[in-house]
Design a protein around this nucleic acid. Structure first.
Length: 517
DNA sequence: TGGGGTCCT
DNA sequence: AGGACCC
């Protein structure tokens, strides 16, 4: 039997990069077919045109151009606001689903941003149309495919047809034109994908990759960002924007030389990329993201912390709504994070986060979550506990749910979803008083105060990594039938509500599940 | 200069 | 908690 990891790392691979042409602009055209593709369209976020359709590009509108400059270049530019990404996300998801349907496992599909998809077709069948040895009509080639290694060429001709097929499906099923690059690695596919645009594709012969890379301006290397560029310029003052990869290889002939500039991890990787060598694999993009965030930038200073809080609350509603619609019940975030950006410190960001224990039911817990988020904001901004930043200096807020647990589906089905009253508690000896979302009547308050000890205990059992005085979110259920507070933790593995006294037994049951698996 | 994301330290 | 990278 073949070792799957050996199979997966078989080299060279056949990799496709599908790139949606001016994605946001196409989304507007697909959503509104009455919008003619001959009218110039720009997508605006705050003061910037982030994307423009090809009619606008012909008129001199570029990516990330100030709205003012764009309108000066093209006064009749039709502007659509693109600050809300909802529709763009939905189209991206539809396109991903289309690709997945036509490229099932073992083909890996990796998404980059909303508009790029790597597909590994190394282990796909030979494409039926590739048997003549001809490339698809809309496929350009870099280098002489016929002169290259025979097996490698067959794989890339087949891959070119698969790319053609994928693009056809995206066009007919989703309505989007795409460009594509095809090559023996992610690097190769990526670098040639933009050679012929829009609505065209390019394949590169394996023997040409190193030559092709060597002739590019060095900033074209993916992974070589602004930080490395700065370090390079400091070491070699002769470097300019037109310095090529080949020039750089002369200056930095070895991985060790690169390591001195870019560090022991990044340096050797960049040294290889500059020689056209990229062994990285296409990795299936997981269905559950590692984080979910919503942010808003604002130009004019916010007058007071209260105004800042109301912005924060709006963002929170929006991230919670996205959590509901995009991730659904089973996913459980491990922490909540608030980030701000200030003008005075060079647009740097600072953040604060609070762990979440056992999961959150947003509908019921909204007030508690708002209080947590406000506490985090006040940690960051003057007027709060430790904040050193002036309110008016803040020009961006970001709210994020971070690191989701997705419980195994077997036990999640049919789990009870009781009505919950969420409580914001501070674990540890300096615990804050639970205030039941304003319901501080005698009996409930007494029970809550008593309950706090249980909560701390439970928190410690579920997340032993938490420190005693960490802020944590916990859940308290109000048992309507019995008219009393009950502490039920949402199990992070199956989302069932579990009483503290049965927690250990419940966890043992999960251990048994794992052993069966 | 936007509104998102990823992974590493 | 932040940095560097990607779109």
């Amino acid at each position: 039997m073949q070792d799957p990891s050996t199979l997966a790392s078989r080299s060279p691979r056949a990799v496709i990069l599908i790139d949606l042409d001016c994605f946001y602009a196409q989304c507007e055209h697909v959503r509104d077919p009455a919008l003619s593709t001959t009218t110039p369209v720009g997508i605006q976020q705050k003061n910037i045109i982030v994307t423009a359709n090809y009619a606008a590009r012909l008129r001199g509108v570029g990516k990330l151009m100030l709205v003012h400059d764009a309108l000066r270049a093209c006064p009749d530019l039709a502007i659509r606001n693109g600050e809300d990404l909802t529709h763009y996300r939905a189209y991206s998801k539809q396109i991903w689903a289309t690709l997945r349907a036509h490229f099932p496992a073992p083909c890996a599909i990796e998404r980059l941003g909303l508009d790029e998809f790597f597909i590994d077709v190394t282990d796909a069948p030979v494409h039926p149309d590739s048997e003549t040895g001809q490339l698809p009509g809309d496929c350009h080639a870099v280098g002489d495919l016929a002169g290259d290694d025979l097996l490698a060429v067959e794989a890339l001709v087949s891959a070119s047809w698969w790319a053609h097929t994928a693009r056809h499906h995206i066009l007919t099923e989703c309505g989007f034109t795409t460009s594509a690059g095809i090559g023996p690695s992610k690097l190769a596919a990526k670098l040639v994908s933009s050679l012929h645009k829009p609505n065209l594709q390019t394949v590169i012969a394996p023997a040409m990759v190193a030559v092709y890379v060597a002739g590019l301006p060095f900033r074209a290397i993916p992974g070589l960002g602004s930080s490395v560029r700065k370090a390079l310029r400091e070491h070699f003052p002769t470097i300019t924007d037109s310095t090529t990869v080949a020039d750089l290889t002369t200056l930095l002939p070895t991985a060790a030389a690169w390591a001195r500039i870019a560090g022991a991890r990044v340096g050797p990787t960049l040294a290889a990329l500059c020689r056209g060598i990229d062994s990285s694999l296409v990795i299936d993009t997981p269905t559950t993201p590692t984080q979910l965030s919503v942010e808003d930038a604002f130009a004019s200073p916010t007058p007071s912390i209260t105004d800042l809080e109301s912005r924060l609350f709006t963002l929170l509603q929006s991230v919670l709504a996205r959590f509901d619609t995009e991730l659904g019940a089973p996913a459980v975030p491990k922490s909540l994070r608030v980030t701000i950006r200030t003008r005075s410190s060079g647009f740097k960001r600072t953040s604060a986060s609070a762990p979440v224990v056992g999961g959150l039911r947003w509908r019921a817990d909204e007030n508690a979550v708002l209080r947590v988020a406000r506490g985090l904001l006040r940690k960051l901004v003057a007027g709060g506990v430790g904040g050193a930043v002036d309110v008016g200096d803040v020009n961006l807020i970001n709210v994020a749910l971070v690191h989701f647990d997705v419980p195994s589906s077997s036990t999640a089905a049919g789990a009870a979803q009781p009505t919950l009253l969420a409580q914001w508690a501070r674990a540890g000896p300096r615990a804050a008083v639970l205030d039941g979302g304003g319901e501080t009547t005698g009996p409930v308050h007494d029970r809550a105060a008593r309950a706090r000890l249980d909560l701390n205990d439970i928190a410690a059992r579920i997340r032993p990594d938490l420190h005693d005085d960490d802020d944590v979110l916990v859940l308290v259920e109000h048992d309507d039938a019995a008219d009393r507070m009950a502490i039920l933790m949402a199990c992070p593995f199956c989302a069932a509500s579990v009483a503290p006294w049965s927690w250990d037994v419940h966890m043992v049951a999960h251990d048994a599940d794992d052993n069966i698996d």
